[in-house]
Amino acid sequence: MDITALDFQQARIKQVLFKSRLRSVLYGVREADPTLFSPSENPLSQWLHTIVKPKYGSYPEVREMERAIQNMLDAGQKLVKQYQRGQIEEARTGLDQVDVYAAQVERLLQTLERTTTNAAA
């Protein structure tokens, strides 16, 4: 089964959802859920492992995306720990680093989308 444009769009939504949940924690709207930072529980990581890796696991973009997602999760978890220690402004400022990883994931998604579309054609 080929990965469709809809699959990629859903992956992008999963990433936005992660960032939104993280932001909600850092702005006191919700409590930190430990599963938010677990690769096995993260919807974007799950998508990568169940949809992408079985067919395109040998692509370098897939391995890079896996690392970028893990970096994004680790950075988010670090920010929540800062927030919980009372370093609220520092934690909120650190969202910029999460955005850097998110941008990296987006670039890799675009590359992979182009590559898989060309491979399927």
Rank of each mutant, 00 (worst) to 15 (best):
24 S>P: 00
55 K>I: 02
42 N>S: 14
62 V>Y: 06
111 T>Q: 15
90 E>S: 12
26 L>R: 05
34 P>N: 05
114 R>D: 11
1 M>F: 11
113 E>I: 02
40 S>I: 14
28 G>I: 09
2 D>E: 14
46 Q>A: 12
115 T>R: 14
117 T>Y: 07
92 R>V: 04
48 L>K: 08
33 D>L: 00
64 E>S: 11
28 G>C: 05
12 R>D: 11
38 S>M: 09
72 M>E: 14
60 P>G: 07
92 R>C: 03
84 Q>W: 01
10 Q>P: 00
84 Q>D: 13
30 R>A: 12
65 M>A: 09
97 Q>Y: 04
53 K>Q: 14
34 P>D: 08
121 A>V: 08
9 Q>K: 14
20 S>T: 15
35 T>C: 02
55 K>N: 12
28 G>M: 02
71 N>W: 04
113 E>L: 02
15 Q>I: 02
33 D>I: 00
27 Y>G: 01
115 T>Y: 10
89 E>K: 15
105 V>E: 02
83 Y>G: 04
54 P>Q: 09
31 E>H: 07
60 P>C: 03
61 E>W: 01
88 I>W: 03
60 P>L: 07
52 V>Q: 04
24 S>Q: 14
112 L>H: 07
15 Q>M: 11
91 A>P: 07
61 E>I: 01
85 R>N: 11
7 D>E: 11
43 P>W: 06
8 F>K: 05
44 L>D: 07
82 Q>G: 03
38 S>Y: 08
84 Q>R: 12
37 F>R: 05
91 A>K: 06
54 P>F: 03
91 A>M: 06
